[in-house]
Amino acid sequence: MKELINSPLVHVCLTLLVFIIAKKLQKKYKSPLLNPILITISVVISFLLFTDTPYEDYERNTQVISFWLAPSVIALGYALYSFLEEIKADFKKIILSMLAGSLTGIISVFMIAYLFGASKATMISLAPKSVTTPIAIEVSKQMGGIPSLTVAFVIVVGVLGAIFGQTYLRLIGVNDPKSVGLSLGATAHALGTASISEKGPDFSAFGGLGMALNGVSTAIFAPWVIKLLLMLLY
């Protein structure tokens, strides 16, 4: 029995099953707090603790799921390509806002964490917090952060953005679909984008664009910025 519980079949089934149920729950109750990722991670952790299974076993058993992370990053290229005409029309403005946003995000989270006494590994793991997880994981791994910690930060940012993002943007007078979409996509990736998708296709299109562009920009700049900041601080 112990061998069956600690097998790829059981671990993959459990993960898929909980995720599907959590997605249904969110659809039914429409609460951003019922985030399927958050729910699935909590249930799986409880299961592993209950069955006394080390994380390394679960990680190995579910490689069939995590293998598709990299291809899903590549698939963002397809989304980016389908927005190409819209990007060209507003090229300068979009690029400027995305560059400023992505640098602001990396530098501010890094410096605030430093000032409040976080450890180096935590600071690096925080740096890519605003981008879609596969890219965040890659940046974190490459720079000496802790990828699974980065994932947690990305989820927290996504949930916060989904719950408070729209209200905050209205407060500072940002209301048009382009600006709202790009801001939320760039700040809170897929979760932020999902929270405005019901407002219309233009909101979700620019949410996706913000997510993709900040992802690319962070993937390119974060390693250099982190290297530079580490050199200056330590």
């Binding site: 993960t15 898929l16 995720f19 399927p36 990722i37 699935t40 991670i41 799986v44 952790i45 592993l48 994380y55 679960y58 990680e59 579910t62 490689q63 799921i65 995590s66 598709w68 992370l69 291809p71 899903s72 590549i74 698939a75 963002l76 397809y78 989304a79 879609t132 997880t133 596969p134 994981i137 990828p147 699974s148 910690l149 994932v151 947690a152 989820i155 897929a190």
Partner: peptide, 16 residues
């Protein structure tokens, strides 16, 4: 892949 992106990082998230 784009529609299911969230699911692919659950194993990494459990590493929490």
């Amino acid at each position: 892949l784009l529609n299911n992106m969230a699911m692919f990082f659950i194993p990494a998230g459990v590493g929490l």
